[in-house]
């Protein structure tokens, strides 16, 4: 399996422990790139700036990707623009939160 797919799958394992929804379904990951030397670049955000769990969530994303065989280095770019909004969530995440 190509590394990009593996990275995507791994990020589904990173759960926001307060919401119990993974960061992919929450729509927190804006961009994923794998460079030629297998460095991984992740552009992501959080549901709100100043979330007490921000280190945990970003650190978790970094760890799961680093653990993938073949990944060289992980670069995480945390951005606040465009601002996260509920419409970035998957249907599954919306259903979980609205139930």
């Amino acid at each position: 399996m190509e590394i990009l797919k593996k990275v995507e799958q791994a990020l589904y394992q990173v759960i926001d422990p307060e919401l119990n929804v993974n960061i992919m379904d929450l729509g927190l990951v804006y961009n994923l790139k794998v460079k030629e030397n297998n460095d991984v670049y992740i552009k992501m955000t959080l549901t709100t700036p100043g979330c007490p769990l921000h280190d945990t969530i970003v650190g978790g994303a970094e760890k799961v990707v680093e653990a993938i065989d073949g990944v060289n280095d992980v670069q995480i770019d945390l951005v606040w623009l465009p601002q996260w909004s509920p419409d970035k969530m998957s249907k599954k995440a919306k259903e979980m939160l609205m139930s």
């Binding site: 422990p17 307060e18 945990t56 650190g59 978790g60 760890k63 799961v64 653990a67």
Partner: peptide, 22 residues
């Protein structure tokens, strides 16, 4: 619970199954 979870489980994210805050 958020504080305790951060202290005890933050470093285990992505490594093993850990409880949710609730």
């Amino acid at each position: 619970p958020v504080l305790w979870w951060t202290l005890k489980y933050a470093d285990k994210v992505g490594k093993e199954k850990i409880p949710l805050i609730k």
